[in-house]
Amino acid sequence: MTLLEVDRLTVRFRGLTAVDGVSLAVAEGEFVAIIGPNGAGKTTLFNVIAGSLRPSAGEIRFAGRPVAGLGAARMSQLGVGRTFQVARPFGSLTVRENVRLAAGRHYLANPLAAWGRRGRDREVEARVAHLLAVTGLVGLADRRAADLNMGGLRRLEIARALALEPRLLLLDEPAAGLGVDGIRPLAELIRSLRSQHLTVLLVEHHVGFALSLCDRVVVLDQGKKIFEGTPEAVRRDERVITAYLGESGAGEGAMSGGD
């Protein structure tokens, strides 16, 4: 079953077309990566799917219903959990509070329900504890989120997104800012999510990292989709190699670098 369907989506900013008629579909349980050189429109496309940007044209359907322009709060309530490219923790809250916040969203909608629901509170706390364990943050749970290092922040981003119990997990460059030492455990964490049949859409600048994780890859260049297929096929595709060559002059090197 198709969970996410992006149909001829276009986003323009004052004459600049950041995303140009892109269509793609993500099936339930699938892991799709969107890659492309700098300025290809990856992050713009991602923000439209997450609801924080309104498309200029085209439609997005999530679980069959049109959702373009609904806004980020509504999208997260519908089951789209996202991480941010530049880690954005609530720095003055503890790591646990950061996760708890996302885990409690169902009854945050009604603030008067904040009191007296002990049963649900326990359920939420159990889920928070589980997520902290899964993402390896247990030891840091009661630290201020602002004190985490880059690897910890990346994990917190994922823990928060998972706390929303998303049907679709959107990962926005989760490896950004990490060295080789940080990338390997992160890849393992993301792989373990796969085994839970989570549907994932990953936007990544780090090509090797993305290709090692996904089932299918979509390549954007200058706002247009130039390739869609398996990670094996993408390494041999002429247009893709040209797009990366144009950017970095590294060609095959850029395509095979990383993991």
Partner: peptide, 13 residues
């Protein structure tokens, strides 16, 4: 602290 992230966490600002 960060209204945009709060919205992504399902909080209706």
């Amino acid at each position: 602290q960060d209204a945009e992230v709060a919205q992504a966490m399902g909080i209706d600002a």
